[in-house]
Nucleic acid binder design. Structure first.
Lengths: 197, 197, 197, 197
DNA sequence: AATGAATGAGCCTTCATTCAT
DNA sequence: AATGAATGAAGGCTCATTCAT
């Protein structure tokens, strides 16, 4: 006998994954409080008790999504540190590359991004960790001589995160601009400023 | 935050103002959903029905706070447009001045700021309006010759708001830095960038 | 000094009468529970405490209206008893006359009628009293020889009240027919029936 | 009225039916506004949320009861139309039969009757629909020759409903008289009137 | 692996009524 | 005669979570 007739989702992992996916979308769209367990399971064609088979409670599934996002973000931040032996002529290009990668991930995972950046109460933890990592990178990079010695790397790191956060919302998730364009814009601005000289 | 022992039945306007003040603090601290009307009135030494004497419902008082903040922000943005006849040597100084004013308001009204920037579901409306106003300013200012002709004013405006939003949270409200310092940092960064040239 | 400048309603009786009138209309339109003291006083341009200057509570003003109506109804019922020395040829005319009078009162006092007939929980008391009075009348009239000896006067009285109640609502208050017509119709029906003989 | 010790979690349909039954009784006894959801569920040995498992809200369960009654009433009215080939000698008997059926239903369902006739704000809709149906019947029956050509069928229909409504309350539900007697009384009165001729 | 049925806990809101002036 | 301000009391409804199968 093959597996036909098996109730859909009889594979627990599938049900779990489905719940995660649906929940991410609901949280992203409606926020934590307005998202009801009952709506999640309805969209996943499951019953409410099933939800508790896979997650301890509503908070737990939300945290799982938060963590998923946070871990990825840290990875990206780490990978974006500039190698010490770059030719100055490719510096901008290299920075753009790292940033673009990040933005492409965000664009491909809009629900997770919404949650991790805007909805999670602990969104600030994520951002704080990102800032720290980027500050470390910058300290290193300043030392290597890529940037001015007198920049306040903490403030620059904070600013970069602020910019990413804002543009992700207004340009990326709303599909106004492509990751590449946005990355270029950001890098241009932060490298050169807007003064006419 | 300010529950003096007011005589009951004294003055409607005072009760209303008190509720607004307490509510702002509660919303800022706990968010919209976790804030209970019952806690607000308790802290204001009033009964629950009294709340509904002054506000249609929980949503209404929250919106009033949102609006208060939004209107102020727009004012600041409008006032920050640079006059066309500035001496270039005072340009930075003048920009810092406007920004510092705004930051000082935010620092003095932390609850409202939390609400308007981070808690309100319509925080993005505020930011969008701010961006629009600043973009207009920038377009004007570029035209006058203060900044490079090739800057994407929309992106710069968005970036500025992102930076303000981020630094307000991480430096200003947490009292790590003074408005003046933050304003200087931001302006330095955006005017000159971080490249060493 | 004449009375100009005196606050309107400074005459207590006027305020009281106004409240009664407005209340009657509100009760008639919305029923007892949906009628709020606050709406009554608002329409009377008075404050809520003023209401309690004139009436013990919401129930009391309602009962006053109920009583007003009930007393009038009983009067009409009493006056409708037929004199013992009528000429048979004027019998119908005389009955119509009494009924028409009653209906004219109802038509002129639609709010009170609504309350007393349909809204009051004690509407049945009124009807019961009316039935009793009419039964007495009928017993007397049967005895005098105006009607068949074998009629169940209780049932006829009940029926008459039922008919009046129904036609008052569907024909009289909705202004479909005049009191005179309705009275004639009722009397025709009850005197002769609908059989073709 | 029927709180057997049902096993919890047994059967949704039973719970629903029980709620409907209990609610009917509560509404009949105390009216719509004084009936509390909390009392209904208490009598049904259920919790308050369970109520909302089966009914959208308090209004919905009331409307369901109203509809139940209205539909039945219309059925009875339709079934009471007289066949066109009756022998005149059995006419009265046949009319009584239809009316008695209706009254028996009312007597067996006193709660529903209270609600549909006296408590529902839309009681008048029911009565209006009944009147319409009966008027249709009468028009047809007059045409067949059962009744006088000059009767105002609208008024007779209204009167009949008024009588039924009144006697249902004062004689039937209070168990003063049997359906059969009441039906006979009504028919006698409407067919022949009370004049002595 | 899954669910029909049920509930504990809690919050918002409304209204009649009163206090103090 | 009148009212601005305030409240006690109560009821409807929602939601996350669990029991029993």
């Amino acid at each position: 006998m093959a597996e036909r007739g098996r109730p859909k989702g009889a594979n627990g992992e599938e049900s779990r994954a489905l719940l995660l996916e649906v929940a991410a979308n609901e949280f992203a769209q409606n926020g934590y409080h307005k998202t009801k367990v009952s709506s999640i399971v309805k969209r996943a064609s499951l019953s409410q008790p099933s939800f508790y088979l896979y997650f301890k409670n509503k908070e737990a599934i939300f945290e799982e999504l938060e963590d998923l996002f946070r871990l990825r973000m840290i990875e990206f931040a780490k990978k974006s540190r500039l190698e010490p032996d770059l030719q100055l002529s490719t510096l901008k290009e290299r920075i753009v590359y790292g940033l673009q990668n990040l933005l492409e991930y965000l664009a491909k995972n809009p629900d997770l991004t919404q949650i991790g950046f805007y909805i999670s109460t602990r969104a600030n933890e994520v951002k704080k960790q990102l800032v720290e990592q980027i500050k470390e990178n910058l300290d290193f990079e300043v030392n290597v001589g890529y940037f001015r010695k007198d920049v306040d790397t903490q403030m620059v790191a904070e600013s970069l995160i602020g910019i990413i956060e804002r543009l992700t919302f207004s340009q990326l998730l709303s599909q106004q601009k492509e990751p590449a364009q946005i990355a270029n814009n950001i890098v241009d601005l932060l490298l050169e400023g807007i003064l006419d000289n």
